[in-house]
């Protein structure tokens, strides 16, 4: 019995040495760290970040969106709200970015989708604070007017920073592209 336990202990000690060898080998091998602010990971493709509007083919300042409200209805977290004006009506009341989810919800229901004339998007707000990145809105969009951004670097001092006004973002992007 003593011999057995001695043998076991000796084997155990050997296993410890083997473990130390493994860590030593890893000590010498190359590092796998991505030095993030200086370099970024190669594989952001396919990542679903927050949504962005896709510009229409003719005018990079105009979104493809036809304000059908499909995305508003499908969104599980009710984080999208959009308003549209019919081209004929001139004065449409301006709505500001809603603050809470309840408001968004009611608004989403209030805005009946305009079916007859092609409505023009007036505001398209995504409250990223509520989004769960499921991608249902993008899939439900009939015109392909939404895409995922790969901006994963968001961080801010207030939560209002992430109530994203996608329309103005689109215009900014178009401007940048022109320059």
């Amino acid at each position: 019995m003593i011999v057995k336990s001695l043998r076991e202990t000796m084997l155990g000690m050997w296993s410890l040495l083997v473990g130390m060898k493994v860590t030593a080998v890893n000590f010498k091998s190359t590092q796998i760290t991505v030095h993030y602010p200086r370099e970024v990971v190669h594989s952001l493709e396919g990542y679903r970040g927050h949504i962005e509007l896709v510009p229409s083919d003719e005018d990079p300042y105009k979104p493809k969106c036809i304000a059908c409200n499909n995305c508003v209805r499908i969104c599980p977290s009710a984080c999208i709200s959009l308003t549209a004006i019919k081209p004929k009506k001139k004065a449409a009341e301006k709505t500001e970015a809603p603050d809470s989810a309840d408001e968004v919800k009611t608004k989403g229901k209030k805005e009946a989708p305009a079916k007859k004339a092609k409505p023009e998007l007036e505001s398209f707000v995504c409250d990223y604070n509520y989004c769960c990145l499921c991608g249902l809105c993008v899939q439900s969009c009939p015109t392909g007017a939404l895409r995922y951004s790969s901006n994963v670097y968001l961080a801010g001092f207030t939560r209002q920073e992430f109530v994203l006004d996608l329309l103005s973002r689109l215009q900014n992007q178009a401007q940048k592209k022109e320059q």
Binding site: T23, N26, F27, S29, Q31, T33, H35
Partner: peptide, 13 residues
């Protein structure tokens, strides 16, 4: 630093 190298990362850098 040693811990970092064992973990294949740079440690304090």
């Amino acid at each position: 630093k040693v811990a970092g190298f064992i973990h294949r990362r740079p440690g304090p850098y």
